[in-house]
Amino acid sequence: MPSQLPNRAGVSLKPEYFADVLNTDSSKTIGSGLWFEVHPENYMTCGGPRLRGLMDIAEQYAISLHGVSASLGGPDLVPDEYLAQLKSLIARVDPVSISEHAVWSRFEGRYYTELLPLPRTAEALTSLVNGIDHMQNAIGRQILLENPANYLPLISEMDEPDFLVQVAKKTGCGLLIDVSNIFVSANNCGIDASSYIKSVPAELVGEIHIAGFDPDPRLGKRLLIDSHGSAVAEPVWQLLSIALQHYGSKPVLVERDANLPDFKVLLAERDRADAMIEIDESNMRYVHA
């Protein structure tokens, strides 16, 4: 499995939380198996306080790099410049896991900032496999691939779990199952969330995400948006329970990218997720001492 995250719960780390993390009594938080995930794009800088802060935290906690811009399923391979920046960041923070999304976001030299969906076709599968192969070869390690949140029902040749499992088997990557994305996709596109979760073999799953979502301002609950801007909703906690029952103990991340709450509030959500994971002390060996 390409992830060496502990089977404990972690949280998204934003620069706004650096002082909280660095001022916290780390003997308690490290012992709790807490780990952090960041978007590498926010740290692909030449230097400066933000990068320094992440490097300081990485000396004490396990870090996961969760990319949002590689555009693995896009028409062009991941740009060399991006890969060079990613490799530089990997060398600086020594992440225990690297993940990306099963989407595309670059087209004809432009970056569209959105996690754009791929139709689940043989052609898209080949494009995604090529993108993952290129990235894994470039960075010299396996990645985890996250299922997207879907808003549009694209004409497809296979369902999403089948599509992702085939990609994983062809590339050797693992899967990052975002339970919230499954909930959002189920709401928006009419799939069965429980069946989706149970269709993915446990051995391919290296990490689970949970996050908050919001109704579309115009269409309301008919279209749920994967906003990461609110607390995790109860139905998602229920799906997490199903996922952990099916997959066994896995690293779980509470994602939060907007409307950031007090760090203690986020840690409380994290502790709820952590309590749901069956703790296996043998998994703690990967946590930085």
Binding site: E41, N42, M44, T45, G67, V68, S69, A70, S71, P79, E81, Y82, Q85, S105, R106, G109, R110, Y111, Y112, T113
Partner: peptide, 10 residues
Amino acid sequence: YPPRQGSLTG
């Protein structure tokens, strides 16, 4: 001037 790089810091 749409973005051309994945990192939007600059």
